[in-house]
Amino acid sequence: MGQVIKDSPAAEPRFKARGVDKHFGPVQALTQVDLDLYAGQVTALCGDNGAGKSVLTKCIAGIYEIDHGQFFWEGNPVHVRSPRDAARLGIETVYQDLALADNLDIVQNMFLGRERLRSGLLNEDDMERAATKTLADLRVTTVRSIRQPVASLSGGQRQSVAVAKAVMWNSKLVMLDEPTAALGVVQTKMVLDLVRRLRDRGLAVMVISHNLNDVFEVADRIAVVHLGRLVTQGPASDFDRQSVVDYMTTGASSRSGPRTDADGATSGTR
């Protein structure tokens, strides 16, 4: 493969991956993956189980180091070798298990590992104020108290706290792994609204999802991986359900849809 994707001059992707390979022993997990993530757009990353969605996400998040290929951040080549590197660029990931400590409250979870101090002791007042502001900005208002333990939150609220935790740090790219899995209808809506608000704040958002309802509800762009290859990506309006399913299951579609090499980087439509 190794095709060159032409960027539209108006919008340089915030994040680009070019020719990314990753293998684990004899297993080739990613082959020549090219991916574009734009600021102010939600990109849905779709694919069947084992297609390589999680591996690709973890490579971007710095958990795995890529074997070949190059990442570009706002046009400049970058190396992401650890989660710390990713965090420094402004890349945050919300994993499916959310990584929240049930016994800590919302503020404590949001600041875990980056607590603010005043003369050596925790500055709870400052942290509580900042956490309250972030949640209010994201309009996460269903929690009764910001000091309640995360154990007492519903699934949707937990997801919201995890997202708020990720965007607190001037992050510029947020990747959400199956954010609506295991949520009910109302809570799914709540989380998708939150995803839209992230986009409206100008963040680049990548949502990994199986759920085509969610994908078409929230995505501006769609990218599909199949057997470790990124088989297509483009504006969501160029796809329909059947074409996405075709790409996910066979890696190709006879129906209309953008070809990766022809039309990779059209700026998305809302």
């Binding site: 208002t141 269903t142 309640q148 007492s152």
Partner: peptide, 30 residues
């Protein structure tokens, strides 16, 4: 979190159902 609710125009319908009175430490909301 009553303080943060001001800008909310459409209150989330889950709020009432999720009012987890039992597990929220009482001193937080009283």
């Amino acid at each position: 979190m009553a303080r943060a609710e001001a800008p909310e125009t459409a209150p989330d319908p889950t709020a009432a159902a999720e009012a987890a009175t039992l597990e929220v430490p009482p001193e937080l909301v009283a």
